[in-house]
């Protein structure tokens, strides 16, 4: 391996990581919002919206992100909806992730016993207050391992952004291999940068999971 090459490529990978993280976290934030909203819709069984949410979940869980991105990026402009590659990445990741986040939040919500709701209602709380102050906080902490698994999954999925010309890690590696044929160095840096991005999240995930499983509130 040629260390001079690695050193000269380093700044390019750093920029790519910054871009990947930027789009990644924006997309994940969006997916959490979509997830919460969707889970609330299903929880309150709001008519029509409930059906739409169901269709959305099935559509986005049963198609690859790559195809979703192609649709957003190449197909939508043809009917007059033009969005930049970055927005596309955020939107694609957010919509894909949202479909998974809804499920995680929902399983958390479903695990809270009905009588907790009843006890909040009997204190005079409205349905909405019960949801916000009593049910949701418990559900979220139960959902944390699932949510973090989704975060890892979504950060991995960012690797397809290169296909819509976003200069992320994958794009940079592919580009450099194509231009200078320093395959080994490029792949080495690619692996290292994905490790830098994902190992901390993965470790955090296992720590939190263990704590939630063995402890609970108040420790």
């Amino acid at each position: 391996m040629d260390y001079a090459v690695i050193e000269s490529y380093l700044p390019l990978y750093k920029d790519a990581l910054a871009l990947t993280l930027k789009i990644g976290w924006q997309g994940i934030a969006l997916s959490l919002l979509v997830g919460l909203a969707g889970a609330a819709i299903l929880h309150f069984k709001i008519r029509i919206l409930k059906t739409i949410t169901g269709i959305y979940i099935e559509l986005f869980r049963n198609t690859p992100l790559l195809v979703q991105l192609f649709f957003l990026y190449f197909a939508l402009p043809k009917i007059g909806i033009k969005i930049t590659a970055q927005t596309c990445g955020v939107l694609g990741l957010g919509l894909l992730g949202g479909a998974y986040m809804i499920e995680s939040f929902r399983s958390g919500l479903e695990s809270i016993a009905v009588i907790q709701t009843e006890s909040a209602l009997s204190l005079g709380m409205t349905k909405e207050q019960t949801f916000i102050y009593v049910i949701l906080p418990q559900a979220v902490s139960i959902s944390v391992p699932g949510l973090l698994a989704n975060v890892i999954f979504l950060l991995k999925e960012t690797s397809v952004f290169s296909t819509i010309s976003l200069m992320d890690l994958m794009f940079t590696a592919k580009d450099l291999i194509g231009m200078y044929a320093k395959t080994i160095e490029c792949l080495f840096l690619l692996v290292v940068f994905y490790l830098i991005m994902l190992l901390p999240v993965s470790i955090l995930g296992s720590i939190l999971e263990r704590r939630l499983r063995y402890a609970g509130f108040g420790d």
Partner: peptide, 21 residues
């Protein structure tokens, strides 16, 4: 852990471009 955190695309590149090299 490798499978958990490495994107499949990276693995594809390693095998297809890396190992052949």
């Amino acid at each position: 852990e490798i499978v958990r955190i490495m994107p499949q695309m990276v693995l594809l590149f390693i095998v297809y471009f890396g190992t052949t090299r």
